[in-house]
């Protein structure tokens, strides 16, 4: 018992400055109204996704053919779709798909991008040139069309949507991390570590990368919105999640033919997309203002 306490104490002592910095950052975030609104929207979104089975009033897949295309009512707060399914419940369950796509795509994209960008920036020279040209190639590839081609080639489903969008997103991180690494790798503290015999891998992963963290966090936050938007667009034209999955983009597509008279079928899922993406964007904006050292203090 005593040993764990001393362990924690020594850990706290060792990282005292970092903890202080972290607390200060949290304090700044809580002072920024923009970030707080964004954080609130995202928190609601995550909670809805986690507790979907408890929140949804109906089964999202249950088709009640006698209640097709019903207008919003007490029974169905956001109406029903052309199969008589409750739209509110489908939106609630759909949040799980969006969370899943967003988190997996951004993790894969960021992981590939960080490794490529870090290596590229650190080694420099011809290797850097080749890696960056490859990244440029993926960047100039029309993203939606590449994603569609991958989905068409591998078969349109959720997994391939994720692969497709991740393949399009990684160069963004690679470029970002590379520029950060370039600006840090020649600084004096890196030279000091090298003179003490720190290996390249140690320098890169323990000393350089943690210093690139805040722009990556900002980028990833905004990217979650972009990715959810892209996935919804893919599903809308039929290359993403397939029916009967309650994916938001696919739901808008379902409601397309009823937009004139039964507007709620397409309107509400689209509104859900808009809300969540707005949430990620303002959280990202707020975080950037807080984390950017040039704007800070």
């Amino acid at each position: 018992m005593e040993t764990t306490d001393t362990l924690i104490d020594s850990w706290l002592k060792k990282h005292e400055s970092k903890i202080k910095e972290f607390k200060y950052t949290l304090h700044l975030i809580s002072k920024s109204p923009l970030s707080m609104i964004g954080a609130f929207i995202i928190a609601c979104f995550l909670l809805i996704a986690v507790f979907a089975p408890f929140l949804a009033p109906h089964d999202p897949y249950y088709q009640e053919m006698s209640a097709r295309l019903e207008a919003p009512s007490f029974q169905h707060p956001l109406g029903t779709d052309d199969m008589g399914r409750d739209i509110l419940s489908r939106i609630i369950y759909g949040s799980r798909i969006s969370v899943l796509i967003g988190i997996i795509v951004v993790s894969i994209g960021a992981a590939i991008g960080i490794i490529v960008g870090a290596v590229s920036g650190y080694i420099g020279g011809a290797g850097d040139n080749i890696l960056m040209r490859i990244a440029d190639m993926f960047l100039s590839f029309p993203p939606l069309i590449l994603a569609m081609a991958i989905a068409a080639a591998l078969g349109p489903n959720l997994r391939n949507t994720i692969i497709a969008i991740a393949l399009v997103r990684w160069p963004v991180y690679a470029r970002l991390v590379r520029s950060q690494v370039l600006s840090i790798k020649n600084s004096q503290f890196i030279e000091a570590i090298r003179s003490m015999g720190g290996s390249d891998i140690r320098i890169l992963f323990i000393h350089i990368l943690p210093n690139c963290l805040s722009p990556i966090i900002v980028r990833a936050t905004m990217d979650l919105g972009t990715v959810i938007l892209a996935a919804a667009g893919l599903s809308f034209i039929g290359f993403g999640a397939q029916p009967p999955l309650p994916e938001w983009g696919a739901m808008v597509s379902d409601g397309r033919q009823y937009i004139v008279s039964e507007w709620w079928v397409a309107a509400f899922p689209g509104l859900a997309i808009l809300f969540v993406v707005v949430g990620f964007n303002i959280l990202g904006d707020g975080l950037r203002d807080v984390l950017d050292p040039r704007l800070r203090r």
Partner: peptide, 12 residues
């Protein structure tokens, strides 16, 4: 504008 699902805006 940066958050809008274009396909949804188009429909509306």
């Amino acid at each position: 504008g940066v958050s809008m699902p274009v396909f949804w805006l188009g429909l509306l």
